[in-house]
Design a protein around this nucleic acid. Structure first.
Lengths: 119, 119
DNA sequence: CTAGGACCTGACACCGGTGTCAGGGGCAAA
DNA sequence: TTTGCCCCTGACACCGGTGTCAGGTCCTAG
């Protein structure tokens, strides 16, 4: 498929897909005229990229990790394993922070709800 | 206390504290010469600001919410309540995403660990 | 009184992902 | 062959929080 279709099917803008390629996160076959062509697997790959972005990973890290993520069940070199472990720790910390903040905000909502009931 | 001490006690840079003030998230008493002075409560307030930043809230939202967060157990106007609820939903979605990604990455680590054991 | 550190404002720069525009080519249906 | 849509590259702009520098003031210890 060409870039427009990939964009539509993944929710990423055409601009972003080109950016992903330039950052080494995504590859494409070029036709003789230079147009990008993608196989079906690209859809999944882009979705994964966006997922990793969504949890705060940057493009460099994603580029390093992705080759080892996509063919799943693969063993990856120790360097990548370390990176993965570090990212997991970061994710856990972030989840903790989210939970903590959630409690703070939720208690505000509850307090207001209670005050409204009591009125 | 003055801004340097507040910075040291909260981990925020002096630059950031001035920025927080300009965005309406933080206030200070000014001495005759224009220097900022803060009371003890400012420490907690800054920590809260940073916590909210850490979960992806932007300064405008924080500025709207904070006056109702700090005097805890307060009832807040419906507009703010809506905003709070929206933020809670966002936080929940983000937590979900984190958990999902955590599973993806963790399975990679596990696969590699297993492969290493089997070798 | 003076020196040195802390503070003030304002301005410019950075990062990283994205939007958008310009100027140009590819390609298929009519 | 023309029309219209899709694609190409390169460049500049934006956001939002922060770093940093310049040029100036304040204040406290010696």
């Amino acid at each position: 498929m060409r870039i427009g279709e990939l964009a539509e099917r993944t929710g990423a803008s055409v601009r972003s897909l080109r950016y992903y390629e330039k950052q080494g996160m995504l590859s494409s076959q070029r036709s003789a005229s230079g147009q990008r062509h993608y196989d079906e697997a690209a859809v999944e790959r882009v979705l994964l990229i966006r997922q990793l972005f969504a949890v705060g990973m940057n493009s460099r890290t994603i580029a390093e990790l992705l080759p080892h993520v996509v063919p799943s069940g693969q063993r990856c070199p120790p360097q990548v394993l370390r990176q993965l472990t570090a990212e997991l720790a970061r994710i856990d910390a972030q989840a903790e922070e989210l939970a903590r903040t959630r409690r703070t905000l939720n208690s505000m909502v509850e307090a207001t709800r209670k005050a409204m009931r009591d009125t």
